[in-house]
Amino acid sequence: MKNKSLVSITDFTRDEYLRILELAAEFEKNPRQNILSGYVIATLFFEPSTRTRLSFESAVSGLGGKIIGFSESASTSASKGETLYDTIKMVSNYSDLIVMRHPLEGSARLASEVASVPVVNAGDGANQHPTQTLLDLYSIQKTQKTLDNLKIFMVGDLKYGRTVHSLLMAMSQFNTTFFFISPEELKMPDGYKMHLDQKGLEYYETNDFSEYVREADIIYMTRVQQERFTDPIEYERVKNAYVLRRNMLEGTKENMKVLHPLPRVNEIHTDVDTSPQAYYFEQALNGVFTRQAIITSILGIK
């Protein structure tokens, strides 16, 4: 993995995922080490994402690395019309690795081709956010003790939700059975279902949650956003149908965990928060260890 950029979840192989997860477990036991001392990590956030930026910066700081960068492009030369190409060329001179978030899709791939140092994509528009996927894999493995042969329920906006698409691509290498629960307008796109067909994996599509939920190992919730609906009446009709409440978890497996990439709006009722099956806050913390694993393996330290 040394010097390899991480732009898209499909850039890494199954073995590389497993290696990252193994390292993440090591960092969880020992998140404060001085192994990044002398390294400079650039965090370039062309659009604000406090949650993701703090997770990366906490990961780097915990290992003694220095951080340079910006948290919104308004204060930088990019706002004066500098191209991404030029910004990346410049920042390559000052850093050992670039973490970048940018509103335009494909920006991270371009940056990885322009930069003389590796690039980690921290989100390029609606396209890819691979470190989120790796932290999801880590959370699944940690709670289920395996990634193989699980039943994963994906709920909510399956059409535009990039996190569920990337998770599907990654988990399709572990013989997963998928259940897709979404309103008609926000169904999983055919391209992803074709991918599962090609892999010979089973999946079920339904708009009724309760029928199968007892089989779930993981329930992965996503936000259903109003702006995704062409018809506002349709939004009003479905928005409450995809809210998870504690009583819906009755009779589910003990090992089952509820995941969510956060921030949530109202799709998980707060009465779920105190359930032992709620895992979304720990999931976010796992992001720090996973990002430590990604950065140190790309830098060739681990």
Partner: peptide, 9 residues
């Protein structure tokens, strides 16, 4: 929203 439609690429 592709980078190629917004920057000289």
């Amino acid at each position: 929203k592709c980078i190629t439609n917004n920057q000289p690429v």
